[in-house]
């Protein structure tokens, strides 16, 4: 068949078509994350100079409060503490979760609400196949964004001399990816089961926010410590994934959440009516 139109190979199935749809958005996200990471990393040398003064101030904060938002270490002269505090404790997971939820909402729910799903399912493609190809787009997008974050950080680490172990950076990013994947897959399942974009975003965002708050509250109130176990944020490493490194058992929990949600997505999508 002679190629015709732009990028015919990207139109070979729903997975490649999905990636094609996301190329612009993905590029913008990658650029934004890279700029943010470079900016935060390049601030570190000047922070390090004033770290000794800051440590006193940080240590004057209530300990539970400090732990909840910053973790164990109070030494901002240490790049690991700094990066945990500035990036990994909130902003970075926030970015990748927003990205993952938006991408999840654009898959089954997006096609259904736009009205393109009816025709898509008129071709000899099973629902399971479509679902897994759509999920592939979600996984690939999340890998790319987390990968871009990692690569930028590795480059910044070498260029600025942050002296963070490469294995710790890789481990924290693996946790980051699994956190985003778990939250995004739950959102994806809502989309596959209901076809509602708004609900998909609401549930995904709700899971992210509630998880973050549960983890914080569990640190602040000793008697509620058990609550953290209900939070995907806890399994990600809470406020200090870079110090904690990659922990297989915790990672397995996040993976299990994603796998369970994917199973639900599949079963629900197989069984239900597709709206016009």
């Amino acid at each position: 068949m002679p190629p015709r139109g732009k990028g015919p190979t990207m139109l070979r199935d729903a997975f490649f078509k999905g990636l094609r749809d996301q190329r612009r958005s993905l590029l913008i996200w990658v650029a934004a994350v890279a700029v943010y990471v470079v900016m935060m990393c390049s601030l570190f040398p000047s922070i390090r100079e004033g770290a000794a003064d800051m440590q006193g101030y940080i240590e004057s904060m209530p300990e539970a409060f400090r732990r909840a938002f910053m973790g164990e270490s109070t030494d901002f002269g240490n790049a690991v503490t700094y990066l945990n505090g500035e990036l990994f404790s909130l902003m970075t997971p926030l970015f990748v979760m927003i990205f993952g939820i938006a991408l999840a909402a654009a898959q089954i729910a997006g096609e259904e609400e736009n009205g393109t799903l009816s025709l898509l399912l008129a071709f000899p493609v099973s629902r399971a196949r479509l679902l897994f190809q759509k999920y592939g787009v979600l996984v690939a997008g999340t890998v790319v964004l987390c990968g871009a974050h990692l690569v930028t950080m590795l480059l910044a680490n070498a260029a600025i001399g942050l002296d963070v172990a490469v294995s710790d950076l890789v481990g924290a990013h693996a946790s980051l990816f699994l956190l985003a994947l778990a939250v995004a897959t739950v959102a994806f399942a809502v989309g596959a089961a209901t076809g509602r974009r708004g609900l998909t975003i609401a549930v995904g965002a709700g899971l992210g926010i509630v998880s973050y708050l549960l983890n914080v509250v569990a640190q602040l109130v000793e008697s509620l410590g058990w609550l953290k176990k209900l939070s995907v944020f806890y399994y990600y490493g809470g406020a200090e994934p870079l110090r904690l490194g990659f922990r297989p058992a915790y990672a397995a929990v996040l993976l299990a959440v994603a796998a369970g949600a994917l199973l639900v997505a599949w079963l629900a999508f197989e069984r239900r009516d597709v709206r016009v």
């Binding site: 015709r4 139109g5 015919p8 139109l11 070979r12 199935d13 729903a14 078509k17 025709l119 898509l120 071709f123 000899p124 493609v125």
Partner: peptide, 8 residues
């Protein structure tokens, strides 16, 4: 083209 590819 996309629809033709899905169909084969």
């Amino acid at each position: 083209r996309y629809y033709a590819n899905l169909r084969g």
